Computed example of a mutant assay.
Amino acid sequence: IKEIMAFVRSYVVPEGFPDSVTPSYVPYMTWRALKHFFGGAMGVFTTRTLLSSVGVSQSKVTPGAIAINWILKDGAGRVGKMLFARQGKKFDNDLKQLRFSSDLLLEIGAGIELATAAFPQFFLPMACVANVVKNVAAVTSTSTRTPIYKAYARGENIGDVTAKGESVGNIADLLGTGLSIFITKRNPSLVTSFALLSCGYLLSSYHEVRSVVLNTLNRARFTVAVDSFIKTGYVPSLKEGNSQETIFIHPWRHEPVSIGSRFGEAFQEPVSFVATRPLFEDERYMVTYNPTKDKVYALLKDHAKPDDILKAAFHAHVLLHFINVSHERKRMSSNRSDHYGNPHPRNMDFLAHIAESCKIVSSSYGTFRKKAKEQVTLLLFVIS
């Protein structure tokens, strides 16, 4: 029995486990295996649907036509993958958010493939769209996989961790495929089966991404750290910061803070720049608020260093906090003011808030940076 267990372990866990990986490796791999199980099961249904739609089950369709349609479908997917690959620089920023988004895209692509059963006459365009979506998801998933595995590796064993992680995924995928083949023989409801498997896949994907603990600050985790520090004076631990990070971000979501902005975006009019500039004479950055766009902007001056960028981001969130607090206090009065046609409170004189934020940042940034560095490796996020 020991020999059998050792043989199995050699395929599913890194050498030296559990000391060779971080503690969060087990929950991550558990959810990852479950996700691949559901993914493998869904693959049987979508492949069967595609084959039926393309005409394999219809004797009137020639094998040559079937092959051409299938090749065009795959070709469209490869073109989509190639075009999306130029966005690779963004994969290093919101890694967990992109990873979950890729699984959502994969489900959308699978759903389109399933819909070809209802519209077989539109097989080629629908299959091409589905394959483009799924290949874009594949690029995102592949690009974010290595950094995640790297976060679990202790020492120089990233290759071993990656290999065993992929092995677990493949085993789970095969198990899911086998189960799905057995189920399809009973001719279950295609829509119901797909809906259940899809829910299981997305739920597993969410918990898989949620369990990832990265030791760097990206935009989302930086926001969590600053908000906690402003409100409580406490910088969350590595695990706490990751657990509080927002995983799903709507594409239309309004981002209240922009770092590395342009002058025209940040200042509504030149007089605002003239009034704000004296407050930042000793800094390599400027922070301001544009009420028309309801956004705080941080502008970087020439020769700004990494710590200046970090400080500018910290200052921007402090200013946003003051503006939000002021907005909450004046919400009731703003409703009455709006009724009588007076300006909305977001168009308030925000220079006082900028001046107040400068004082707070001057006295507290050093403390924040020290506490944050004790918890994580400070990594500058991509400037927007």
Rank of each mutant, 00 (worst) to 15 (best):
A163M: 12
A163Q: 08
A163F: 09
A163I: 07
A163L: 10
G165A: 11
S167W: 09
S167N: 10
S167K: 11
V168F: 12
V168H: 11
G169D: 12
G169F: 02
N170M: 09
I171V: 15
I171H: 03
A172N: 07
D173M: 13
L174Y: 09
G176D: 02
G178W: 02
G178T: 06
G178C: 07
G178N: 05
L179S: 07
S180K: 03
S180M: 04
I181F: 13
I181L: 15
F182V: 09
I183C: 09
I183A: 11
I183W: 03
T184C: 10
T184F: 10
K185W: 00
K185L: 13
R186N: 12
R186L: 14
N187L: 12
N187S: 12
N187Q: 08
P188H: 05
P188T: 07
P188Q: 10
P188F: 07
P188A: 10
S189R: 05
S189H: 06
S189F: 10
S189Q: 07
L190N: 11
L190W: 10
L190C: 04
T192V: 14
T192Y: 08
S193G: 14
F194V: 08
A195C: 07
A195Y: 04
A195G: 11
L197S: 02
L197C: 06
L197Y: 04
S198T: 12
S198K: 01
S198L: 08
C199V: 15
G200W: 05
G200E: 05
G200V: 07
G200C: 08
Y201F: 14
Y201V: 00
L202K: 00
L203K: 06
L203C: 14
L203Y: 12
L203T: 11
S204F: 01
S204V: 02
S204L: 04
S205L: 06
S205T: 11
S205R: 00
Y206M: 13
Y206G: 12
Y206Q: 10
Y206L: 14
Y206F: 15
H207C: 14
H207Y: 14
E208M: 15
V209K: 01
R210L: 11
S211K: 12
S211C: 13
S211Y: 10
V212E: 02
V213T: 14
V213P: 04
V213A: 10
L214T: 06
L214N: 00
L214S: 06
N215I: 03
T216I: 13
T216K: 15
T216W: 11
L217K: 01
N218A: 09
N218W: 01
N218S: 08
N218M: 05
A220L: 03
A220K: 00
R221M: 05
F222K: 00
V224W: 00
V224D: 02
V224R: 01
A225W: 03
A225I: 07
A225G: 05
A225R: 01
V226E: 00
D227Q: 15
S228G: 05
F229R: 08
F229P: 01
I230N: 09
I230P: 03
I230A: 14
